[in-house]
Design a protein around this nucleic acid. Structure first.
Lengths: 154, 154
DNA sequence: TATTGTTATACTCTATAACTATA
DNA sequence: TATAGTTATAGAGTATAACAATA
């Protein structure tokens, strides 16, 4: 075999994919998720669960639905997420004061410490990844850009 | 209810999520996928299938495994993808010349036309989304940045 | 009537392991 | 022995619809 040189990874033509933000965003994001998995492997939390903790940590007392809306996913998906986090004693559901239909979410003491540790790890690899960027100003510019792209409508 | 103003979507504190590229990348990418779905709804292809077509279109004769490697996913995932695309008569498997284990992938005529049409649609909404960016130079800068972030290792 | 949490369900995407036929 | 395609399978993520309790 290999009498004729084959197309290898290096010389594949990506065509329009090279110019599409959608494709490039996906590849970059996949890499970030993979790195998150490596760094937080033993913690037993996914990027999604990390995001829930981040919201509850800064906004104690929110309902499940409010957290779901903030993160842009369906409230039905929050049930399993909160179940897991409550099972790990990282947060807890308390009956809401004014509405007996809903729960208010609060971090436990253990959860606060756990999350602080997780933030430290994630910050560490985020900074490592950000070494692709020239300056802190460039990173801020990129963050603003991504925020705009996340909310742009057609 | 609502005697005390509740925390609404507008004043939720996203904490560290606001500074994390990983989170911002995910939100931006989710928006792009949602827009792709809206625009290509009737075409019956996902972003993943579109990417396969893009690679085969520009690199006729590649094996399934080569396409999988180019796109960064497992070769087992290619089976269903190629099955779907072949079922829609957009590409075809031909026995590889030198290796009876593998197939070479080629676009059909119909597939070429279909893909050209899809590219037109996706380009259209990509351009609309890119209006978030100040200039074409900025877009190129963003694409380069995303490419680096996609390949950065810890 | 509308909303909260929940359940059931389903669909996509992704990854792993094992099998077969070839190399 | 190693590789290409395949199959079976399992896990995560996401979304929809419907229900009971409550507003």
């Amino acid at each position: 075999m290999q009498d004729h040189p084959k197309k290898s990874d290096q010389n594949i033509d990506f065509g329009v994919l090279d110019e599409f933000l959608g494709y490039r965003l996906r590849r970059a994001q996949m890499n970030f998720f993979a790195k998150f998995g490596e760094v937080c492997d033993d913690l037993g939390i996914s990027p999604g669960l990390f995001a829930v903790l981040a919201i509850v940590d800064r906004n104690p007392g929110l309902t499940q639905t409010a957290v779901a809306q903030a993160l842009g996913n369906d409230r039905s998906a929050m049930v399993a997420a909160v179940d897991k986090l409550e099972g790990k004693k990282l947060l807890e559901r308390r009956p809401a004061a004014n509405d007996r239909r809903s729960y208010a979410l609060f971090m436990t003491e253990e959860g606060t410490a756990f999350f602080a540790n997780a933030v430290e790890r994630v910050s560490c690899y985020e900074n490592e990844m950000a070494k692709c960027l020239e300056s802190d100003k460039e990173k801020q510019w990129l963050l603003d850009m991504l925020e705009r792209l996340a909310h742009k409508s057609l």
